[in-house]
Design a protein around this nucleic acid. Sequence first.
RNA 1: GCGGGUGUAGCUCAGUUGGUUAGAGCGCCAGAUUGUGGCUUUGGAGGUCGCCGGUUCAAAUCCGGUCACUCGCCCCA
Length: 431
Amino acid sequence: MSKLQSPRGTQDLMPEDMAGHRHVMDTAKSCAGVFGFEEMATPIFEFTDVFARPLGESSDVVTKETYSFTDRGGEGLTLRPEGTAGVVRALISAGLTQTLPQKFYYQGPMFRYERPQKGRMRQFHQVGVELLGPTSPLADAEVIALGAMMLDRLGVLASCALHLNSLGDGESRSAYRTALVEFLSDVKTELSEDSQRRLETNPLRILDSKDENDRQLIADAPKLGEYLNAASSDHFNRVAEQLDAAGIAYIHDAKLVRGLDYYCHTAFEFITTDLGAQGTVLGGGRYDGLAETLGGPNVAGVGWAAGVERLALLSGQAPRLDPPLVLIALSPSNGADSNTDGADGGMSIDATLFALANTIRNHGQRVEMPFSGNLGKQLKRADKLGARYVGILGADEAARGVIVLRDMQDGSQTDIALDQAAEHFSTLFQS
RNA sequence: GCGGGUGUAGCUCAGUUGGUUAGAGCGCCAGAUUGUGGCUUUGGAGGUCGCCGGUUCAAAUCCGGUCACUCGCCCCA
């Protein structure tokens, strides 16, 4: 439409959009706080290696979707495509691996060069939590419970299903991977084009192929669950046990896999049917090997990230500004019947009103002062702002030392003594 | 990266087999009401029909390209 548009896959967050984002972020932060997760932030760009190694050199996110560049000093940098790698890097950088566990909440923009769709942007926003240190299944359950609480507070949990699976530890996973590749290689030519490619790059991904023929072939494939070693299946069972105890419903989804290489054991996604193809609203899992991959000590971790845009789309109306008190000044130029600059030595009407507004604002109440217009126009403005009460001050009232308080609902007006106006107006909004 | 759909006023959309001044509702501005909002009523502003090119006496309408949005695939939050 206009020639001046934001780059593809980006969007301006105008107040009504921002209100939705803010609501999601505030809700996430407060839920995280209840669980003891404190907010932190990492840079929006990192050395490219921070993402390339842990996410998988061959993963799509790294090979085709990053915004990477060389800065003026010759450093290879990448705009973060996700949050976990940066958080773990920061943990190591700060030496916090000595004082575990650590619980972090974060929020901010991520960048992936993808074809935009509803709920999928090139610059998008995530909220996320990371619990670093514990290997216990309790940690997995705690993190999932936190996610469920947030979704519930946002009113979207009811339309989501929690899918849960175990990818097993490294040993289990590579054993299964070998078995799966062996099985699928025999029927390779029958697989869809995409899946034939995935057989090379990320065979586990074939499990959640949407191709009907693929699905039939997969039905007879070896199951991941059968390849879990004792430690892995025990871990999974204990996570499930905790969720049961907490009354959190889930679906054991043997086909649920993760796109990023660093995941092991628990993998989970909250999926909705209300967003078309972009149904995953919150996803995460355990990533015990990540810290070591980055070159740090062996630190276990589990966490998730949720898409702010997607949650905002689902969670409906977000709170906006409170209704204001509107103060209207009438000066000669807009209809008053005498001058305003304090012939009796007092303050002008504008100044009186401005001082009053400041006092009430200091009490935390929103006050709006229309900048111009006659009384009718200013009242119209007040109505549009959603004001319940309006204060009107003209030369008449100033001379009598009062201000008119108008109730916009029933149209009634009363005089309030000017020297008691601040207190009176403030109490109007305390209910 | 691949395939389908859609681009007309600030917003939601009409616009006939190509035909002369491109419309509606909502919103916006102003008047009726120069110290009283909503409701009503009257009037007004606002469009190079996404952009570029082609066909034609004539293009919002047909054709090609391009950009954007959108749905699906891919990928993922």
